[in-house]
Nucleic acid binder design. Structure first.
Lengths: 152, 152, 152, 152
DNA sequence: TTTT
DNA sequence: TTTT
């Protein structure tokens, strides 16, 4: 019986992505993503907000895209899975960090939201996220919309 | 700027899947999936429910899995995208049908929910959905941070 | 045993929303949303794309927000459920239309993406989508664990 | 411009839920949820798996449902948002824990998956999750399926 | 550390 | 009918 572990975020990069390589040569990128919730306080009626920071990790193709086209302040859609990683600090205390291992990435902001060297008309991210899922992609049906007969 | 077209369903198969092949030899499977919403009528206080039927289409590996392990009444998780297809009936009237082109499939029911020849402990679907996304899957243990106190 | 019927879209409005009222006075808004997939043709290596049009329906508060702040070309995030509706055309032929009944709506575009009369700093949509889910929203700071080392 | 912070899980409860009350009398429930990913090791060809544990927190109505109907081993669908909470252990070391604050909960397992006192045919969870979203729920269209004319 |  |  299958399980599911999925995270979907739309948020802003807190800093430029950091890109490295793994031991076997794969690219890895990291960034933190801010999401902000706003609500009205029931008691005081005041508007309040809380920002949550998410640690996003990307590998290979997605890491390259992040390194090339994303920067501090970029607005992105990220889909991935939660993964907890154990690490030990200098103080020898064990800690856990929860990361989102991305498997989809889409740029959402306007021109000023991605890096200057981004391609004019077709960001590679679009292309690449399609590639990511290509194995499951069927030949799309040819389709034309004729709206007349349709009630709205 | 990217767009997103995603459907997520948990429901029951209305009939056994139908499996065919495309012109180029790829497997294709179809089934309809029922989801049911229940709510309490505000006026009368009575419990009401409505069932929605979804047309799911699967290609290649996912089609094979559906054909082998799913049957009428199976409970499944399906993820995919919406696609409208035009067709013309015997009456020469053009119609449109909306289908969910699946890119992930997970079996959720108990033993009696999948076909008798399904493997005892590890349904191939699990395996296969992992395969589907394998290109984006990093080796979880192979990467270690080398940062200081706070690893990002 | 529960089922799930969920759609998640990020796309562009094809036209300004149409707003009406139901018989009992609730606001209803409709718009169509375009999502575009791009991929590289395996055979020819050419870039191809297909646009899918989704019919989105919003009620009450979300309908008011759509009517006030969205317009042709707006980029939005929509979450909702699929619902098939039967209708009979002038030709007396029965047809089915699949709609997305929205239960969350978020504006994603820049300044030029929403209507001119939109509030400068706090679009009501943000506020409203928070309101929509308010019943489920806990007060984040008010709860503290009293466990030992590992809080669960 | 809105952001999004969403988690979707299907998994098994590691233990019975723990239920308490907040200072203001609201019910709170906690449980941990296991999701398991399986994949084939590229190098050795062996099947491998990794289990991830998620800390789920539920308030009010959802907390009551969890307390009443869920137990160790229950299979559930959970939707919510990520929230990081800071806490200080007995060793005076500050730590962070990431929790999923649930806003939807659906039972997925068979009879043996939920507590014995669960209602026979209509688990309250279904009802309640409908209630949660009731404000956004329109009157469902009457709809009947006539499959003959439809091409699959 | 982001953004509106 | 949108957008890049």
């Amino acid at each position: 019986m299958s399980t599911l572990n999925k995270v979907t975020l739309i948020g802003y990069l807190g800093r430029d992505p950091e890109t490295r390589s793994t031991a076997n040569g794969d690219a890895v990128a990291h960034f933190t993503l801010a999401t902000t919730e706003t609500w009205k306080d029931k008691a005081t009626g005041e508007k309040r907000e809380a920002t949550e920071w998410h640690r996003v990790v990307l590998y290979r193709k997605l890491a390259e895209i992040a390194g090339q086209y994303l920067k501090k302040g970029s607005l992105v859609y990220v889909e991935g899975r939660l993964q907890t990683r154990k690490w030990t600090g200098k103080d020898d205390v064990e800690r856990y960090v929860v990361e989102i291992i991305a498997d989809d990435l889409r740029m959402l902001g306007g021109r000023n939201s991605h890096a200057e060297d981004a391609p004019e008309h077709k960001p590679e991210a679009e292309q690449s996220s399609a590639i990511t899922r290509k194995s499951a992609r069927p030949q799309p049906a040819e389709f034309e919309f004729e709206d007349d007969a349709i009630p709205f």
